[in-house]
Amino acid sequence: MKKFLLFLGGLIAALLLLANLGPLVLLGVSIWLLYLVFKQFMKTDSTMAKIAWVLIGLAIISIGISNMYAVIGIVAAYILYVIYKNWNNEPKEPQTTDDPFVNFEQQWGEFNKY
């Protein structure tokens, strides 16, 4: 049952990721362009050029903000990652042996928790 729910969650997350692939790409491009504008802003010494770069940067920020649906795609990608990591995780049962050294290590670990 757990694997089925993980599969179902992964399928939904994959569909959300594919549906938001366009906004993800456009958000990435706008972040890259904003980085380039910032580099040019820092290079220039002219006040008019700095004002122009700020205006261009504000236009690019507005493009980036309009693609906030990409955040849904990022969350879906993270959910896919978590499902991939937890796919074969099964809870381990504590081992009980008669070996005194193993029991000592377990007791020492419990002692160090506090």
Rank of each mutant, 00 (worst) to 15 (best):
G73W: 01
Q107K: 09
Q106T: 11
I12Y: 05
Y81H: 12
K3L: 12
F38K: 07
F101Q: 15
V37N: 13
I12W: 08
L17C: 13
G57N: 01
K39A: 14
G73K: 01
A77C: 10
I60M: 08
Q106S: 10
D45L: 08
A14N: 02
E110T: 06
I74Q: 09
L55C: 15
Y81Q: 12
G28M: 04
E90C: 02
I61P: 00
P23F: 09
L5W: 10
V29Y: 11
N86V: 05
W87V: 06
F41P: 00
G28P: 04
A76P: 07
M1T: 13
S62A: 15
N89V: 09
I12T: 10
Q40G: 13
W87N: 05
T97F: 11
D45N: 11
F41S: 01
N67C: 09
E93S: 08
T44S: 08
N103P: 04
V102Y: 15
L55H: 09
L58I: 14
F38R: 09
Q40E: 15
S66C: 04
I72W: 07
I56H: 01
V75A: 12
I65T: 11
S62R: 03
G73A: 03
E90Y: 10
I61T: 07
I60E: 02
N88L: 11
G73R: 01
Y81N: 12
S66E: 04
Y114G: 13
L55T: 11
L15K: 07
G10I: 04
I60F: 14
T97G: 09
I65W: 14
D98N: 14
T97K: 12
G10Q: 04
T96I: 10
S66K: 04
G64C: 03
K113M: 11
L27W: 07
L21W: 15
A49F: 06
A14D: 00
I79V: 14
Q107N: 07
V37D: 15
D98P: 00
W53S: 01
F101M: 11
L21E: 04
S46K: 08
G109M: 10
L34P: 00
Q107L: 08
N20V: 02
D45H: 09
L36T: 08
L11E: 07
I51V: 13
W32M: 05
I61D: 00
N89G: 02
N103R: 13
L15C: 12
P91A: 12
N89A: 05
F38V: 03
